[in-house]
Design a protein around this nucleic acid. Structure first.
Lengths: 241, 241
DNA sequence: TGTATTTTTCTTGTCGACAAAGAATATGGA
DNA sequence: TCCATATTCTTTGTCGACAAGAAAAATACA
């Protein structure tokens, strides 16, 4: 009970009304996923099925199903017969992560330049507007998730479901790292992401594949570089000279 | 290598021996996955939880959990409140699939050339030996799954878990298409895959990144080309002039 | 006092049963 | 005969309960 310290009285989930059959798992899954990705549930913290069941006012069965799904996405880990916990962020695997992330930035932006339709552009611009608003409002959590949504929309315009789903998974994992990043920087806004997004949109609209590729690469590498700076800075703080 | 150990030689009639707690889901998951990927369960065919429960001699709960996992991998689809069925092979999405597959062939082979250890090579050679044996024995199913295992081992040597898991998923989906391919060709053996694998191993061992990239690309494109031939040929048959 | 062993506790894994949601089938009226 | 409505049937979604494993706590023993 010492760990997790999950406050359950503050959130709005306590009002249990008649739920539609089959909607429970999605509810639990979505909420838990968001809480994990927003670091409201700390990596490594324990997850108790009966506690969740009580919190959501349902039996353990649908809770369990949601957890199985999250395990499938790597957001949760289970020790057989023993414990269930939020997956830790794999710092050692970060180079590999960034490698994959940058590649997917490139590939999806490139494909979007090739295959987008007018409707795709409308959706992409909507996402960009949401991201822009979040930046203006200095809402870090919203910034992070709308940023992911923006790139997810780009990927969708690329018309490759395999890349899109893989990219979504990477972006999800990235939300946790970015959250860590902004947390330590006191929720200050990111330097030039909004402008870079605009450039990407322009390249996609112009169907300029080379430019889209290049911008995707630069955008990705810029994020990588910033996170890298964070980590080295944190190292210094930890060593505490 | 597919299913090792206890394979039910008799259909359905499972003498239920005392099962270890928690082993049930994995059993069901592994077996169902293999049956789906080997096309023993036809795409689009219905899946009945009760029937499976009876077949495996266990309650619906663990069955359900295995199904949820398979849904997560896209191998099974569920219509809410109604039916569960094996996912259809998405022929329209095949260009996208091949695009992703070739890219992953390239990336994983390239990374393997960079990061492999001596131990990786041993494992890779084991997989290649198994594949070679399957080809020699003209066992199509074994050929397909050992081929996937070979490339999975290459990916593992690349030390990028994100690429590896994505690649594994693609290879899984590919097993179904390949199975379709060999089925229609009467289980004849593939032309030069064994040799190409040897070339890949040599390039990886020599840490020749450029060659590894090139070979991965060629290997992937060769498969794509063959499947393409199959499809056009099938189209002709379907039209039946 | 320190360690080995038993007991308790706590969480997960599995079960059988029941209710809801559609689909399939039967019934009734024109 | 044909269509609209009611009824049954099948399959899934959810529940509460219980047993198994493993850690924590309690006990026994030197």
């Amino acid at each position: 009970m010492s760990t997790s310290g999950a406050r359950m009285t503050d959130n709005d989930t306590s009002q249990i009304t008649e739920r539609k059959r089959g909607s429970g798992v999605k509810l639990v899954y979505d909420l838990l996923r968001d809480e994990i990705l927003d670091l409201k549930l700390a990596p490594g913290s324990a997850i108790d099925e009966v506690q969740l069941a009580a919190r959501f006012g349902m039996s353990r069965t649908p809770i369990r199903e949601a957890l199985v799904r999250l395990v499938g996405e790597g957001l949760i880990e289970t020790l057989p017969n023993r414990s269930t916990m939020v997956s830790n962020i794999d710092f050692l695997g970060m180079p590999a992560y960034f490698d994959a992330l940058v590649l997917m930035y490139r590939v999806t932006t490139r494909l979007a330049a090739q295959h987008h339709t007018v409707n795709d552009l409308i959706i992409i611009r909507e996402r960009q507007a949401e991201f822009s608003a979040a930046v203006a409002g200095q809402d870090a959590l919203e910034m992070i998730s709308t940023n992911a949504d923006f790139h997810s929309a780009i990927a969708a315009a690329g018309r490759n479901a395999y890349y899109a789903s893989f990219f979504d998974r990477l972006l999800g994992e990235g939300r946790r790292m970015l959250r860590l990043y902004y947390q330590s920087y006191d929720d200050r806004l990111p330097p030039r992401y909004v402008d870079e997004h605009e450039e990407i949109i322009a390249a996609v609209e112009a169907r300029d594949v080379a430019a889209a590729d290049q911008l995707g690469k630069a955008h990705g590498e810029q994020i990588v570089e910033q996170i890298g700076r964070l980590l080295t800075r944190n190292d210094r703080l930890d060593i505490d000279l």
